[in-house]
Every structure is written in structure tokens, then in C-alpha cells.
Design a protein around this nucleic acid. Structure first.
Lengths: 250, 250
DNA sequence: CGTCCGCTTGAATAGTGTCAAGGTGGGTGG
DNA sequence: CCACCCACCTTGACACTATTCAAGCGGACG
């Protein structure tokens, strides 16, 4: 068998850069209540001296690289970002998927270097916040402070979930959990989920592309995944649970 | 194949309870600098109104159960504690190992319930800190605040490591990483590592007991692990790296 | 219209899980 | 003090699953 995970995707031809959308206007931000500054007073917000910039990241563009000096955090206004860990043998593993309202680059709060590479999977609008500004706010605003702790907790909970649900059991077990996970992470008002490409799916559960492909293809044949066009699918939760009997357990 | 992980160990005959060692005297604590209150002023420490108690946990005793109201955090003065996640199918997975200087039950800072069950693996001396006290200190002492953030980061880093190094690749790959990991986690001044029982090893890397056993036995035959008596072993790092060529990669 | 890239599928092989049987060491009770 | 017992570790044989390597397929795009 040997290793799982995925090799580095060749330097994509379409890896365009992020485009700057201008200074953020947090006071009038439409998603402010869903992200870090939700409960912050306007007064407190004004205490930020450093600029917060907005960017639009096309798919495959990089928010930051592993080992880069961590100077900024990012909040996701819309889109989807993967945190990729580079293993010693050159393979990759996706350790987290982050979406609207999530914070990327938390480690910048503590200085040092980024621990992963953050890559946009879908077009993503993000606000780039200087870590120094957040540190200052963190010290002054209990509301933000609590929000930050909750962000840490959220990352930790998801990491643990990734260990117990996405890295344990047979490929079919993992894909079953992955589909539920993706539905939560990418669903729109209709409840449809956006499937990632096979390489990313494989890197999320630590198996080979062909193995995921077989299982996903099976799910489609069984009507567990019904194509809605593009990469969007309707997930039949009931059929999903019944799929291949329970976990054989033991 | 089916699931990995390990079933619940029968209610151990020796699961004695923790014994109370009395109120902690943080001011004269020998390991204070290594744990949460390291850089705290004596004045700040005095601001704690609620009592901090010391306990000694024998092996297999439980610090707290999953879903229990999270009211306290624990700092480990000595010993080894596992964080166990209970999966829907009844199997268990160890998501983290914590030792001297580590904090257990971080989630209590945010209220709600514990997300894992914490079980002592070796005899462990811990201080039990009321979450309310820590929340108050967190708001007043920047030093403690930073220390807490670093604790969150440490947990997150280890969780990610668990995903990339202990849940990815062949069983031999994982055991190789696990041995390095255990050496860091349990080494004494001689550099020897303490091996866990096969069931716990299996639950750490998400495979079956027999699979770990085979690989560990192989490591012993190859001189990678040299028995020092009891559960202590000398790890030959060089032989470890050469073991079975590199990860076959791809 | 042809090429390229990602997805699927097939066949052979290696790796794990499964089930069952021994071995070993420490502890208990006779 | 010794024999037995029990829990845990190891090993074997076999079934099943995942990986590997290779080929085919179809859509997107120039």
C-alpha cells in the first residue's frame, strides 16, 4: 500500500493572483455579525490603526504559504479555503476546510510562521487583518477576545473531527463522513453540496485518488449523490446512512 | 476492512479514583514556570478566589467524561493523559496525548461540555483549576492570556500533526512517526521512550491492534526498539529512518 | 477537430483486517 | 513456593480492501 495523500499539483496555469478590492469598511460590512467583529462596538473598531484590506481570491490562488512570516489573519466573507499541510515525503494533506465567517491564519496572533499553506478552492472574498491590530483589539475588547477563543476552539474541534471522522475507517466510511461534512461546509439554501475534485477529496481523507473516485462513482450509481449540474450534487442522507450496511464495526 | 480504532476496554478492575492531595500552593510550585501560571505575578495569582486543588490520578482513572459540564481545566504537573474521542459506531480514537506542562480541558474556558474523555495513562499529578477563575485572570493578565493562546495553538498544532503524521500512510509509516512522537512525549533524561499498550497505540493511529503489534514486533526484531525493561525502550533513530526504505511515496 | 485534463474503470498486487490459536509474564490463591 | 490464571502480546492463515499501473472515456478549449 504505502502512503496516501496527494502529490503537489503542478504549478497551475490559471493560478492568477488575488485582486485588491480596496479598504474594508467594517462599519457597513454586510457579514460583520458573522465574522470576528460581530459584537464589537463601533468605538472599538475605530481603535484599529492598521488598514484592513479586502481581496478577491480566484480558485487556486494562495492566501499564504507555509513557513512564511505570519503577519495577517484573514476572515472569509464568501468562498472556500483549504489549509494544506506539506509532508516530509512531498505528499499533501488537507487538514481543514474554511468558509464564510471562518478565520484563516490564526497562528499570526502569536507571531512566528504560518503552519500551513492556505489556498482558495472557490472564488473567495477575504478581509486581510494585520495581526498587530487584532492583538491590540484582543487586549482591549472582551467581546473580540471571546470571539477569538471561539475561533480557536472551532479550529480545534474541526481538527479533531478530521481525525475521528475523516481519517478513520474504510474509504467508504470516510467518504460517507466527508459528504456530510461537505454538505455543512458548502451548502446553499437548497441544501445541495459542492463536490471538490478527486485530488482534493483524496487529500482530505488520506487515500488515493482512484480509491475516492471508485467510491464517489458508486455513490452516484446508488443515487446517494444526484448531479445537479456542474460540481453541485443533491445528497440523499437516508440512502447515505443505509449505504453498505452500517460500519461493520468491531 | 471496515473500521479501525479500538473498542471500549472493559470496566477495568483497577480503575481506582483520583486521590485529593490538598489545595495547591502555586506560589511555591516547583513546576509553575512550565505551566500556565509561569509568568504570572504573585499579585495576580492572589486574585484567584476559587480554590485550585491537586489530585493524583492513577492509571486508567478519568479526569472528565465527554459531554460532562466543563467547569474546570487541568494542568499536568507530571504524568501522561490521553484525550479519547468516542465515535458513533462505538469505537474509540485517541486524538491527543498530554504530558507535563500541558493543559487538559481547554474547552472549559468557553463553557459548554467537554468534547473528549480524558484518561490518565500513567500516574498523573494534576492541578484542577476552576474555569471561572481562569476566565477572570485571562481578562486581567496579558501574560496569562498569551500563555492560554499558546496552549490553544499547541493543541491545534498537535491535532494537525496527528492528521498528517499519525493518520496518513501505511501502518509502518504511522508507527514510525508514532515512535518519534512518543519519544518526545515520554522521554526521560536518558532519552528512553515509554511504549503504550497495543490497544492505545492502535487507537492513536487508527488501525487494529494486531497490525500495530506486528509492526512493533518487527521494530524490536530489527533493533529499532531495544527493551530496557518494563515498557521502556531505547529508540534507534537512525535505524528508524532507514526502516523499510523511505515511504514508497507517489 | 484534435488535444489535454480530470474522472472512471480494470487487473494484478500488496497491505490490513479478521479470526483463531499460541506464547509470555505478572499476580493470586492454594 | 509453586501452579494456575488472566491479560496482553504475538503469530498464522485467510478474506477483503486499498494501491498501483494502465487504459479508456468524455468534456473543455484552443
Amino acid at each position: 500500500m504505502s502512503s496516501s495523500s496527494t502529490r503537489l499539483r503542478r504549478a497551475g496555469a490559471l493560478c492568477t493572483d488575488a485582486t485588491w478590492l480596496g479598504r474594508a469598511d467594517c462599519h457597513h460590512c454586510a457579514v460583520r455579525k458573522d465574522v470576528l467583529f460581530g459584537e464589537l462596538e463601533d468605538l472599538e473598531l475605530n481603535a484599529i490603526l492598521e488598514p484592513i484590506d479586502q481581496y478577491c481570491h480566484p480558485p487556486h490562488s494562495v492566501l499564504y504559504h507555509v513557513d512564511e512570516e505570519s503577519s495577517h489573519l484573514f476572515t472569509i466573507r464568501a468562498g472556500l479555503v483549504k489549509l494544506v499541510s506539506h509532508r516530509a515525503d512531498g505528499t499533501l494533506r488537507i487538514v481543514r476546510l474554511l468558509g464564510r465567517g471562518d478565520v484563516v491564519g490564526l497562528e499570526a496572533m502569536l507571531g512566528g510562521r504560518y503552519e500551513h499553506t492556505a489556498v482558495a478552492l472557490a472564488r473567495s472574498d477575504v478581509c486581510r487583518i494585520p495581526a498587530a491590530a487584532l492583538r491590540r483589539l484582543d487586549a482591549r475588547s472582551p467581546a473580540l477576545h471571546r470571539r477569538l477563543l471561539e475561533t480557536w476552539r472551532s479550529h480545534l474541534t474541526r481538527a479533531d473531527e478530521s481525525i475521528t471522522e475523516l481519517s478513520t475507517g474504510s474509504v467508504r466510511d470516510r467518504v460517507r463522513n466527508l459528504l456530510i461534512f461537505l454538505q455543512r461546509a458548502t451548502q446553499d439554501r437548497t441544501g445541495a453540496l459542492a463536490l471538490l475534485n478527486r485530488e482534493d477529496l483524496a487529500a482530505m481523507i488520506g487515500v488515493r485518488v482512484e480509491s475516492v473516485s471508485r467510491v464517489i462513482a458508486e455513490a452516484k450509481r446508488n443515487g446517494i449523490l444526484r448531479p445537479l449540474g456542474g460540481e453541485r450534487y443533491q445528497l440523499d442522507r437516508q440512502a447515505l446512512r443505509a449505504w453498505q450496511g452500517q460500519t461493520p464495526s468491531v
